[in-house]
Design a protein around this nucleic acid. Structure first.
Lengths: 210, 210, 210, 210
DNA sequence: TATGAATGAGTCTTCATTCAT
DNA sequence: CATGAATGAAGACTCATTCAT
């Protein structure tokens, strides 16, 4: 006699993963405080008490979500870009374009999960703040790597790490204003200005400004 | 017989204003969801039932706080800058420096109240989102005004409004990363890169890069 | 138009008092940990959230109950004894007999609320432990007062305060064993032995032993 | 290939015994209701599911603990006293002194496990109450035996069994007050009064009172 | 306007217990 | 015997909001 599949979940994702995915999505769309554990377990189709078998507190679940983001940055975002785009500076802008696509997909409502949590939580959950900083750090390292690959196209004295930080700054500040205005315009404006900055730095397309 | 002063509040701030101030500070430091009305009335030294005489809901109190920010942008931030700084481009950087000071004062923990609320709330409270957009709009108009005062120092074809948006982008993206890292470095890095961008646009200090 | 009575409580006991009474009875019959706040509010016919308007925590409610016991020791137990019994040593035994009556009334199941809580809680709630100690102290003072009123009938060198402690000891130790055995025998045995002790001390009824 | 020792427990106590010991200690220090099975399995270093192989419910574990106390009364408490003390009345006081030592060792916080559980549980778990009564009964039998060994030193008409009950009464009532006051004084006071009582009964040391 | 009591759904979390392997 | 995942009711407590005075 065959044993029937335990739950309706088609691909049988482990309970712990279902919780992380559900929490990730709800923290992203609603924020940390506004998301109740009841919503999470419901979305994950997990029994209420089971959550605590895997995560001692809501905070620990958040930490697991932040780990998920770190583990998935490379395979889900970086690798495809490296695979499809060869120009290192264009790789940077591809990263920005990825965020633009997420903005489009959610009607300019959701934005960047890392940025959202950073501003919502501040230092109220210090362990989460540390992981958020690590997320930014990982992103920055990839941007920096791309910039270094641009080699002499950028001024020698230019601090690649600082520019990498600047790229993230533009990405996050742009997403924020686009969410406030419910319009892609501010994000696109930021990217255009950043492009102009790179043109001026590389001297590769001066005609756009002067 | 003379009637004694009702409360111990030295300068006798009206109840409604006390509530707005208390809510403003708590929403800033803790966020909207994480702040309870109980905390607000306690901090404002107002009776719990009284809050609802002035504000029908927690959301309405938030709207009042957002109005407060709009009403105080000019007298508290813009006017002093206009009074003390004459160079229009330096006025833009003075705005950025104001945020830097707030960052320093709170040990890189609080950041920009408008940005925080924008990312925390998304579109969950549409009326609040509109007021947040208006706050950004007011800021942008002032930056744009300063940039227009710079006249021909900036390239004629440069879209002043777009650059104003970019300035806010840099401000908000920088504050975010500085809060994540608990360090002024990311914010300062963004400001330095923005300065470099302006140097390249105005041609006033090319030596720093090339 | 007459306003209808708010609740079904006939004598309109204030909410706070209803909570204290309900908690007192449940803590007595079930113990502190085994009593849920849900049971208390149900018994008190109070809305669940209202409890916290009056008491910040379950512990604070317990403290209020312990205050209730202290406030009611004299009017409910001591005063009637003083009014009806004149012999000071018999007043002491009247106190013991009061506990016997409570034992009878509850079928030897409930015992002394102060003793129960003392042994259940130990020092896990230090503020409660202090109030429990004060309850014992108040009892001891009354027993001591009665013993002092016995004047020279008791040996001069006998420490009245110590004997008062001993009386409480017999009362509590007796109640405990009667509850364990579900029988009045152990309690009565203790009282009889205490009586014998007093006979020996006063020399007033030597025939019972020797 | 040799099979390595399964667990790190040095003396390799069987799982069931580890559970009983852990439960005994936690029920003693925290009480029955306040102790969770999670704490017990953690302290016993036993897997959560395994507990139910040995004990169907929390109550059954409690019953096992109460059996443990009964089985260990003679070897751990009575036998050493018989071995070291020959005067039967002093054996009674040695029993009291054993409790005093436990009081000292725990800073007057833990007391008598049997007494604690008796007052905490009342008749809510009737099978436990019966075993608690049996525990008292075993104790009483030993005290009674010692008193009978005292033979004619005590008045012939004196009910030895009743005095044995009285001794336990003094022990338990004293421990209770010492825990409430966090002081050995009440316990010592009770013992001194009991000694005086015995002096009066035996006539062996009348000088202390009269 | 102000007050403080009331409301009940909701919060995160822990509970004793069960199950399949 | 052992394991660790699962269960769902219940725990103490907080929430935004309402009400009568």
């Amino acid at each position: 006699m065959e044993r029937p599949a335990k739950s309706g979940t088609s691909t049988d994702v482990p309970t712990k993963d279902r919780l992380i995915i559900a929490a990730r999505d709800l923290f992203w769309s609603r924020g940390y405080e506004a998301t109740s554990l009841a919503e999470i377990v419901k979305k994950a189709e997990v029994n209420s008490g089971s959550l605590y078998y895997f995560f001692k507190t809501k905070e620990e679940l958040l930490l697991a979500v932040l780990d998920w983001y770190m583990e998935n940055l490379f395979p889900q975002l970086i690798e495809p870009i490296i695979a499809h785009i060869s120009d290192p500076i264009e790789r940077v802008f591809a990263l920005l374009d990825g965020y633009r696509k997420a903005l489009v997909a959610t009607g300019c409502t959701y934005g960047c999960p890392i940025g959202n949590l950073t501003l919502e939580l501040g230092d109220s959950l210090p362990r989460a703040r540390e992981k958020l900083a690590k997320n930014f750090e990982d992103w920055r390292q990839w941007v920096r790597k791309f910039l270094e690959e641009a080699g002499p196209r950028l001024p020698e004295k230019l601090d690649r790490n600082e520019v990498a930080t600047f790229v993230l700054t533009v990405m996050e500040g742009g997403v924020m204003q686009s969410r406030a205005q419910q319009s892609l315009e501010p994000f696109d404006a930021g990217v255009r200005q950043l492009r102009t900055y790179f043109y001026l730095l590389t001297g590769e397309h001066p005609s756009s400004v002067q």
